[in-house]
Amino acid sequence: MKKIKFDSAHRKKHFAFFNGMSHPHFQLTANIVITNFYKTLKTYNKPLNNSLVYLLSKTANDIKEFRWRIRGEEVVEHPMARPSFTVPTEQADVFSFCTVDYITDYEAFLAEASRIQELMRTNPSFEDEEGMDNYLFMSAIPWVKFTGIQHAMNYHPHDSVPRISWGKIYEENTEILMPVSVQAHHALVDGRHMGMYFNNLEENALNFKL
């Protein structure tokens, strides 16, 4: 983990402007083409949900601003942001969080995600690790082709963890699409970085191979 110093006076003003807001997060939702990704998973009989977590996490980790976090008056950059995603449990009809280290190797990530997910089914967790902020909060809403989503979160104090959600997969004009929503702290992530995320996500889905 390293500290980020803004050398540009304008970048410092940009950070201070948005960081001073009571609700500094902003959000975009778009339909992403995942035709190749989806068909590849079907061909090789790979799990959909954990594969999506991998794809979404890879895209976020490849953009350094999505690994930045605000700690007091400082900005730090984590070497890796861990997906903390929702999974069903056997304890109740509400979800548990499942937090996994992001591993660049797809098969290794699937194995670790599956292992921890099984633990969460019978021993669910709802608490973040104390002092940790290198998360990517992720949630699946597979029943809805949503066009927007609003997350529950504290306004005071606000956190700087990105939130990534995905919805119902559907077919349109021979392509397979999926709504994706990304929310991030505007003092860290600007529109350019958000656009980069969506463009890279679609490219990663298009070029996904096993």
Rank of each mutant, 00 (worst) to 15 (best):
N49Q: 14
V189M: 01
D93G: 08
T174A: 10
T99W: 03
F146R: 04
L206I: 05
A184K: 03
I4A: 08
F18H: 01
S96H: 04
H186G: 02
V33Q: 03
L56S: 06
T59S: 13
T43L: 07
P179G: 01
T104E: 09
M196E: 12
S84E: 06
L56Q: 12
F85L: 15
A113H: 03
S160P: 10
A184I: 08
N45A: 13
N50D: 13
N45Q: 14
A9I: 13
M21V: 06
A184T: 10
Q27C: 07
F137K: 05
M1K: 07
L201H: 01
K13W: 01
Y106P: 13
I4H: 06
R115D: 10
N154E: 10
P162N: 13
K42W: 00
E73Q: 02
M1V: 15
A60V: 03
M120N: 02
P179L: 01
R121W: 07
A205D: 14
M120Q: 11
M196F: 06
K46H: 00
V161R: 11
D190T: 00
D133P: 00
N204H: 11
L201D: 00
G131T: 10
C98M: 05
A108N: 13
E172V: 09
E129F: 06
M21D: 02
M138Y: 03
E203S: 05
F18G: 00
Q27A: 06
F137A: 10
M178W: 03
P79D: 09
I32A: 04
F85H: 14
F66T: 03
P162L: 11
S139G: 08
V75H: 08
E118Q: 14
A60I: 04
F198R: 01
F126P: 02
K64H: 14
P47I: 06
L177I: 01
Y54C: 07
K39M: 12
T89I: 07
S139N: 04
E118H: 14
W166S: 08
L206Y: 12
P83E: 15
P24A: 05
N49K: 15
D159F: 08
K168S: 15
F97E: 07
R192E: 15
L28V: 10
K209C: 15
A187R: 03
I116E: 00
F109G: 06
E127W: 02
R11L: 15
L56I: 15
Y54D: 08
F97I: 13
E73N: 03
L110D: 02
F126D: 09
R67H: 04
P124E: 09
F126C: 08
S51Q: 00
P179I: 02
N19K: 10
P157G: 11
